[in-house]
Design a protein around this nucleic acid. Structure first.
Lengths: 134, 134
DNA sequence: TGACAACGGCTACACTTGTAGTCTATCATC
DNA sequence: GATGATAGACTACAAGTGTAGCCGTTGTCA
């Protein structure tokens, strides 16, 4: 069993690239046009822009594709969990020097009461799992 | 009293710029040479590189300085708390679409038992504060 | 079978970032 | 006052990013 620190090394995404990946994670493999339509309007991107990002994501290994006749069906090469795990790890390292606590302050201040409850449960789950685990 | 969502708008720092800011937050105002000496060796930067980053940080408003004769005494224009708060907010937005919970999974898995306890206490503190606050 | 729409490929271009060198003004010291 | 060390200013340059256009090919529908 891989240790919990045994991170699979995935490519690093730029800010805007995340927005292109999200529709794919949420709705499964899609063609460029469909991705374009699901990217938030707020960015006001041209379709061409989305295509460029798709090409770059393929190049950096974050996406693969199946060719269907003329067009591609894009598919994430990593799960969202894998990519967020990695991004989070390096974010905490960079901004907090790996110290988790200050991070939590911001995090928890923004959370609703229900979310705080959920967090508590998550903490318990993790601690329980650890006790059983080893 | 400002609301807790009333974020002061600070400049966005690049990965390496964080490393230059950290010594200043930790030890207070310093000259370029001193910052250079406190930046982790791991990066293997030339002194010139640090100076370039200082100039850029001044330009983007993250640092100010007092001129002492020939040289500058650099000083952060924002507290570490302000900058981390903002960075964290935009990170969570970008990577988790603002949903805090998945973030916590990674976060908590990495934490030690003691840290988890600390997190619990922090949660309690926040909830208590909220009950009193309004 | 011809015209056109749609696709991916390639190109562009300004801005940022990581990394560092050269130039000029100034401070300290002999 | 001359000289050398040092500081900040300016310049450089490749890679990455945000944004998008044009081109040749292919699928489709009349």
């Amino acid at each position: 069993m891989p240790s919990r620190n045994d991170l699979p090394e995935g490519p690093k995404l730029s800010d805007m690239e995340w927005e292109v990946m999200k529709p794919l994670w949420e709705h499964g493999p899609m063609a460029a046009r469909d991705i374009y339509e699901r990217v938030p309007d707020t960015y006001g991107w041209a379709y061409e822009t989305v295509k460029t990002m798709l090409a770059r994501l393929v190049k950096k290994g974050a996406l693969t594709y199946d060719q269907i006749g003329n067009s591609f069906l894009y598919r994430p090469a990593y799960t969202r969990a894998e990519m967020t795990r990695e991004a989070t790890g390096s974010f905490i390292q960079r901004v907090f020097d790996g110290a988790l606590n200050p991070f939590l302050a911001h995090f928890a201040e923004q959370a609703s009461h229900e979310e705080l409850q959920a967090i508590r449960q998550e903490l318990s789950r993790i601690e329980k799992m650890r006790r059983e685990d080893k």
